[in-house]
Write a protein that binds this DNA or RNA. Structure first.
Lengths: 236, 236
DNA sequence: ACCAGTTATAGTCACTTTGACCAGAACTAA
DNA sequence: TTAGTTCTGGTCAAAGTGACTATAACTGGT
């Protein structure tokens, strides 16, 4: 790495290091209640600083890729995941984020669908955690995750990102559980249904989810934009 | 600068350059109508690339300052302004933003009060432009300004940033003119008044604006947070 | 002193949205 | 067949919003 072999004065002369990291959200059933909850993959640091601690997936920025491509590649390399939604979160550039060098991290956040998330590679150094039960992470990554959670909550409330946490077909109850998991409060099923059915991006299908213990609910699908970052189309 | 004295292979090996830029908004009376409109200061490029063209104020990131401090300093140095609001906008990192080297720009946006803006230094190389009548700017700065305008509009609509474009005391008509200038549409005075008076951050004073040609309007003040970036307090 | 002109401010009314709640429909399990 | 559960459509009151009307309060001119 850049600074690891340099002495103090060389480190001060060098430009700040630039890194890309990603906060990845996916739904998994809670062990206790079985209801969907937010989980995220973390990677174990194999070097100092913070060796052995868990951290957000990330890495340096290559010269031949855009910021978003770098985030996307990083996500794929570390977790094997392809996100259904990817958006820039924030650039973190505090002076003492890393004890060994000055690092500016441009952080993205991603949503992946449950089918993808289920077959995500887990290993000694890649593991999934409940977003509300992370331990102490490396660097300032706890603060970054909190910030990302805040963004996810506000975006779920006013835009239609929640669909990117689900597969192509879903019931309104499943969709409601997503909202409940993210917003951390219960929603009235009838009122929720009314609001969702008022949004034009929701399409009613002829299919029903069979196999449940009760009345089979109708399946819906989301017909909005493909989710991959409408922002960045205008912001290279 | 880093790459200007390097050859092609050295340039490719070097890490991407990191720059801080700022989009600065202030209100000034329009020449034609006299009503307040959005203006912003730009600086003239004195080197290649884009020598002679207008660009956003910006510069490299020093090692001893945070991203926000860098934006703040830059703003002060180039225009002499102290912002009343400052927030990170976006990190732009497309591959071909600059023809000579790979540059990642972390862009901030700022609001300054009219009293400040009035005594801002203008010179051969620093000039104010109407935000809706910029010429062709250097790099991708036109796109960045458009993005900043979008952010300003949406933030004005749902949060209380508009106050940072005004002084301490203001009439509701002045506040409405700010909203009209930013949102670019007329608002009903009575309904606007009703909404503003419903927000707890607005304080009615005993003072009235004298000297007008008509009934003197009451002065109000904004008692919300000091505007300097509540975001960054939690995001170092 | 009065009036015309203009803005400030309060209020009305219809319409929409939202939260709380109720009730029947449709299925499964026993 | 019945009990249990969820799905689904509906009502109702409260709150918010846009369009509009009317009065209050000032200035400037006659």
């Amino acid at each position: 790495m850049y600074a690891s072999s340099a002495n103090v004065s060389e480190r001060l002369a060098a430009p700040p290091a630039l890194a890309i990291s990603t906060v990845i959200f996916a739904l998994r059933p809670s062990r206790s209640s079985g209801r969907p909850t937010l989980w995220m993959p973390l990677v174990r640091r194999i070097r100092e600083p913070f060796k052995g601690q868990w951290a957000l997936p990330g890495g340096p920025l290559s010269h031949t890729e855009s910021l978003q491509d770098a985030a996307s590649r990083n996500l794929r390399e570390t977790t094997g995941l392809a996100p259904s939604y990817l958006e820039q979160l924030y650039a973190f550039g505090g002076l003492h984020r890393s004890p060994t060098q000055r690092v500016v991290s441009i952080v993205y956040w991603a949503l992946v669908q449950p089918t993808e998330a289920a077959l995500a590679a887990e290993s000694e150094n890649v593991k999934w955690f409940r977003a509300d039960r992370l331990g102490e992470l490396a660097f300032d990554h706890n603060a970054i995750v909190e910030y990302a959670l805040g963004r996810l909550r506000s975006k779920v409330a006013y835009s239609s990102v929640a669909y990117h946490l689900l597969g192509e077909y879903f019931t309104l109850a499943q969709l409601r559980e997503v909202y409940e998991a993210v917003l951390d409060r219960e929603l009235d099923p009838a009122n929720f249904r009314r609001q969702v059915k008022a949004t034009p991006e929701i399409q009613e299908t002829d299919k029903y989810l069979q196999g449940g213990k009760h009345r089979p609910p109708r399946l819906y699908r989301f017909t909005g934009r493909p989710g991959l970052d409408q922002d960045n189309r205008s912001t290279p």
